[in-house]
Amino acid sequence: MSGRYDIAIVGAGIAGASLAAAIGPRASVLLLEAEDLPGYHATGRSAAFWSESYGGPGVQPLTTASGPALRDGGFLQPLGSLHIGRAEDTAKIDEFLAEFAGTGVVLNSVDPAALVPGLRPDWTLGVMEASSAYIDVAALHADCLARAKRTGVTLVTQAGLRAAERVGGAWRLDTEAGMFEAAVVVDAAGAWADSIARVAGAAPIGIQPYRRTVVQLRTDPPSHEGLPHVADISGNFYFKPEAGGRLWLSPHDETPVDPHDVQPEELDVAIGIDRFEHVVDWRVTAVERRWAGLRSFAPDRLPVYGFDAHVPGFFWCAGQGGFGIQTAPAAAELAAALLLGVTPDESVAAIDPAVYAPTRF
């Protein structure tokens, strides 16, 4: 054996890294990463914004509870999010406002034309979510890994899991980097979560990866100073300003795919630009970059945290969709309490963990 640990976490993206940082002071932890570097897939390709409404009311408590830690750590910068619609979207706007009534998320009806220069006249409906912010994903992920390292967590890269066998109350893990042993295995493998479950003999939950495309544009006019994140209430696009007058745009695509090193499709890029040109009268002068990432959801689109009901010592930390980064502090504290069998941190004490339990499937 190359090493024996209390807990082995499979996946060193934001889910695994933040959990490792949370439990590192209280357990011996092995963090296994299949790639050369942690965060290569979903974490490294995030659109990098924090929105309390993103993911819906079931995710919002985790996002809101994460806000203080993210602000105190300097990972958030003001942005604001403007949800826009046309006259035919009135019912969707009303439903959106009703969904978050009483949650503490502040949403205000506004004139979108006052916030988006060049907005085409049919986009008449707007809801401003002022609390939304840029999130420094790379800094947050690096901070989690650094905190984990300081507590003695062992990170092993190029360590794809090939086999897992439970013998005598412990897991024997055959990885590309060698053999390891742990009392508990945590499945934080993102798009590969169901694949890891199969290796360990657990029934897959049905966590499906979806391709999401983002492009970096230059436009005329080039200045987007003061522009918020802008999202279609019907979910057909979003765009947000970036440094140097650039703009990030997504067609909000969700194409189901098998887990792999996903790449953007030219058709999705073209669809995104076409939708953008139907929103504002700006001219696209250059497509500077294009990329795609995997957003992986459980069947009910809520994350999954907890021990498997049928396989001893197998813990789920998966299904975090596109909101895994913005919920990372609270999700890690909640998952840590469940994993270690301790009282949850006060930051997540009001959140019911049963909502996210794997036993719901």
Results as ranks from 00 to 15, higher is better:
57 P>D: 04
49 F>E: 12
60 Q>I: 04
46 S>Y: 09
32 L>I: 03
59 V>F: 09
57 P>T: 14
33 E>T: 01
48 A>Q: 14
51 S>I: 05
49 F>A: 12
51 S>Q: 12
55 G>D: 07
45 R>Y: 09
42 A>D: 00
52 E>C: 04
51 S>E: 14
48 A>G: 07
61 P>Q: 11
48 A>N: 10
34 A>S: 11
33 E>Y: 02
44 G>V: 07
34 A>Q: 10
48 A>Y: 10
63 T>A: 15
43 T>A: 04
51 S>K: 00
53 S>A: 10
60 Q>M: 15
50 W>R: 01
45 R>Q: 13
44 G>H: 10
46 S>E: 11
42 A>M: 08
42 A>F: 01
35 E>V: 02
32 L>E: 03
61 P>E: 13
45 R>F: 02
43 T>E: 04
30 L>I: 04
51 S>W: 01
63 T>V: 15
49 F>G: 02
53 S>C: 03
56 G>D: 07
32 L>A: 05
45 R>N: 13
32 L>S: 06
59 V>K: 04
41 H>A: 15
62 L>P: 07
57 P>S: 06
47 A>K: 01
48 A>R: 13
55 G>S: 06
63 T>Q: 03
41 H>S: 03
50 W>A: 12
53 S>G: 00
35 E>K: 10
54 Y>M: 13
58 G>Q: 11
55 G>W: 06
41 H>I: 03
33 E>I: 00
33 E>N: 05
62 L>G: 06
34 A>I: 01
59 V>Q: 12
40 Y>A: 12
46 S>C: 14
63 T>P: 06
54 Y>R: 09
34 A>P: 01
52 E>H: 12
56 G>V: 09
36 D>K: 07
48 A>S: 15
57 P>K: 10
31 L>K: 05
43 T>C: 07
30 L>N: 05
47 A>W: 07
54 Y>W: 14
40 Y>I: 02
55 G>A: 09
36 D>W: 01
49 F>D: 13
63 T>L: 05
